[in-house]
Design a protein around this nucleic acid. Structure first.
Lengths: 294, 294
DNA sequence: TGGGGTCATAAGCTGCGCTTGTGCCCCTGA
DNA sequence: TCAGGGGCACAAGCGCAGCTTATGACCCCA
C-alpha cells in the first residue's frame, strides 16, 4: 500500500513554498523533508519540485501529482478524523450520535475542519439509527445528534445542516438508464432492489414515501458493496445522493427519475430543547452549517 | 499521516471472510495480518472484526470504519496507479497522452482497473493539452490519446469514452446561489472568474461557447486551489462537473445555471485513423467505455 | 478421535526513515 | 565587497515498527 506521508509533505511544500517551512509544519527536520521528496522523485523518475535558492515550486508534473495526491490525502485525513472520534474517549469533550448517512459521508470532513479550527476539542462518535440518536440526546448520553428526516421529537431543537436526496441508481447498461422520463412509483415498488442489511433510516424513509417494497434482491453490509452490485447489474438500488455523486459524475452509475416522487431529505443537528447550543457543540453545528450557507 | 496498510488489510479480511486468505492476497503471513488488525483495534479501542473458528465478520463499528477506509484506500490506489504511469518507463507497453481533465479525474481509476484486468500492461502517461495530444498520437509519440471536445483531426479515429459538463460554481453564500433561473451568458462574460493558470482546454472551450471573458479575478495552479478560492468567496469559477461533483453533493459549492448555454463536452479516445485498435490500447479504451455503457 | 480450518502469541531480525552535523549556493543589505 | 541568512543536499549513526518463523489453543466435522 502506498505511503501517503511523502505526498502529504509534497502538498505542504507546494503550499508553503519551501521545504524548511513544510518541515516545521510536520515537526521534522528540513533534511527529512528533502530526503522524502528526493526519494519520491527518484521513484517516479521525474522532478516534482523546481528548487531555487529562494524556495520551491511545483513543476507541471508536480502539479498533476499534487492534484491526485490531494484527493488521497484528504480522504485519509477524513478517515483518521473518523476513527479518532470512534476511540471511546472518556475525556471526550463532545459526544456526538449520528445516523448512518451523516456518519458515513459528512461527519469525517466536519471533524477534519473542527480539528483545525478547534484543536482542543475531542469528539466521540457513535453511529445509530435516527430514533436511537434522538433517544441518546434526550437521555443525555450524547451532547449532540445528527438525524435524517424532520425532527423526531418535540423535546429537541433542530437545525438543518445539509440536504440529500434518495436516488434510484442502475448500471449504465440497464433498461431504465435510457428512459428520459424515468419510471413510476408502482414500478419501483414492484422491483427487487439491492438493499442494506438491517434496513436503516434510508429504507424506512423510502417505504414511507412510496409504500411497501418488494423483497430485496440482495442485502449487503456496506454502501460500497451495494454500489458494486448495482454497477455489476445485479439490481437497482436507492441510495443517498451523497453516496453516489462521484459514480454519477463518472458514469459508473446512472440516476433514474421516479415520477411524482420527492425524495429530498433534510439532515439536521438536534439537541435538547431550550438549552441553547454552546461550546464544542455550537462549534460543530456552526461549522457544518457554514459549509452549506457560506 | 495515517498508514493505510492496516485498513487495506481490513478491507481484504472483510471481503474474503478470513485473515488467512487476506494474508495470502497481500503476500504476508497470517500472523502479520492478525497483528495488524489487533493493533488497529487497539488504537481504536473497539473491536472491528467478530472472530469465530469459521472465519471473520465485520462488527457494526467495523462496517463504518470499512466504509470510510474504502474511500481512502481507493483514492490511494488511484494515486499510485497514476504515479506509476508517470514513471518514464522505456519498457512501457502503452504510451498514453491525455488532456488535463481526463488525466486528473478519469485516468487514475481506469489505470487501477487496467492493472487488475491486465497486470502485464505497463502504461506511461503524459499530460498535455488537447491539440498536443492529437499531435503526439499523429506523430507516433503516443499510442493512444484522450482529448476534450470533438475530434481534433481528420487523421484520427475517435471513440467517446465519457462526458462532462462545464459547470459554473459559486460559494453557497453568493448572490447567484439562490437564483433558481440562473444567470445569462452576458453576465458570465462580464464577471471576473477564478481560473487555472495557462488556461487549458477548459478555458478555450468556454470562450468558444460564450465569447471573450473578463480578465480573471485570480489565476491558480491547481483545481483544488480554485475550488478552495471559490468556496472562500473570492469569485465564481467554471469547472468540469467531474471536478465538482463531490462539493455539489455536500453543498460546499453551488452550481449556477447559465441560461441558453450548453456546456456539455465529449471526452474521447483518439488513435491514428485506419489502424484498428489492438492490444493494450484496445483494453484501455474498452474498459473506459464499459464504465459508461455497462 | 484425528485432521483441517480458524486466530493468537512469542522471539528474533531487518531495514526504513529519522536526527545530527556539515557543506554549498545564492541573494541581500550594510 | 563581504558577511549573514535562508535555501537545499549529503553522510553517518541509531531506534523502532513490522515482518517471519514457530508454536499453541480452539472449534467443527468426518
Amino acid at each position: 500500500m502506498v505511503d501517503l506521508g511523502p505526498y502529504d509533505v509534497l502538498l505542504s511544500v507546494a503550499e508553503l513554498g519551501s521545504m524548511g517551512r513544510a518541515a516545521e509544519r510536520h515537526g521534522v527536520t528540513q533534511a527529512a523533508v528533502s530526503a522524502r521528496i528526493r526519494s519520491l522523485e527518484g521513484a517516479l523518475g521525474v522532478t516534482l519540485l523546481e528548487r531555487s535558492p529562494r524556495g520551491t515550486r511545483l513543476t507541471p508534473h508536480g502539479a498533476l501529482v499534487a492534484d491526485w495526491a490531494r484527493v488521497a490525502v484528504d480522504a485519509a485525513e477524513a478517515l483518521d478524523a473518523g476513527v479518532t472520534s470512534i476511540r471511546s474517549e472518556q475525556a471526550a469533550r463532545l459526544r456526538v450520535a449520528a445516523s448512518l448517512t451523516v456518519a458515513e459521508y459528512l461527519l469525517p470532513r466536519w471533524l477534519v475542519a473542527l480539528r483545525t479550527e478547534h484543536p482542543e476539542t475531542s469528539v466521540s462518535l457513535s453511529s445509530r439509527n435516527s430514533t436511537d440518536v434522538a433517544a441518546d440526546v434526550l437521555a443525555g448520553a450524547a451532547d449532540l445528534g445528527f438525524v435524517e428526516g424532520p425532527a423526531v421529537s418535540d423535546d429537541l431543537d433542530a437545525q438543518v445542516v445539509a440536504r440529500d436526496r434518495l436516488t434510484l441508481v442502475v448500471a449504465p447498461g440497464h433498461a431504465w438508464a435510457s428512459r428520459r422520463r424515468g419510471i413510476d412509483a408502482e414500478r419501483l415498488r414492484a422491483t427487487p432492489l439491492v438493499a442494506r442489511e438491517h434496513g436503516s433510516g434510508t429504507r424506512a424513509f423510502l417505504e414511507h414515501s412510496v409504500g411497501a417494497l418488494a423483497e430485496p434482491a440482495l442485502e449487503l453490509a456496506s454502501t460500497t458493496a451495494i454500489k458494486g452490485a448495482v454497477a455489476a447489474g445485479v439490481a437497482p438500488a436507492v441510495l443517498s445522493s451523497l453516496a453516489v455523486a462521484g459514480e454519477l459524475a463518472v458514469g459508473t452509475l446512472v440516476a433514474v427519475h421516479v415520477v411524482g416522487l420527492d425524495l429530498d431529505r433534510r439532515l439536521a443537528a438536534v439537541w435538547p430543547r431550550g438549552r441553547p447550543l454552546a461550546g464544542p457543540a455550537a462549534d460543530l453545528v456552526g461549522l457544518a452549517t457554514r459549509r452549506r450557507e457560506g
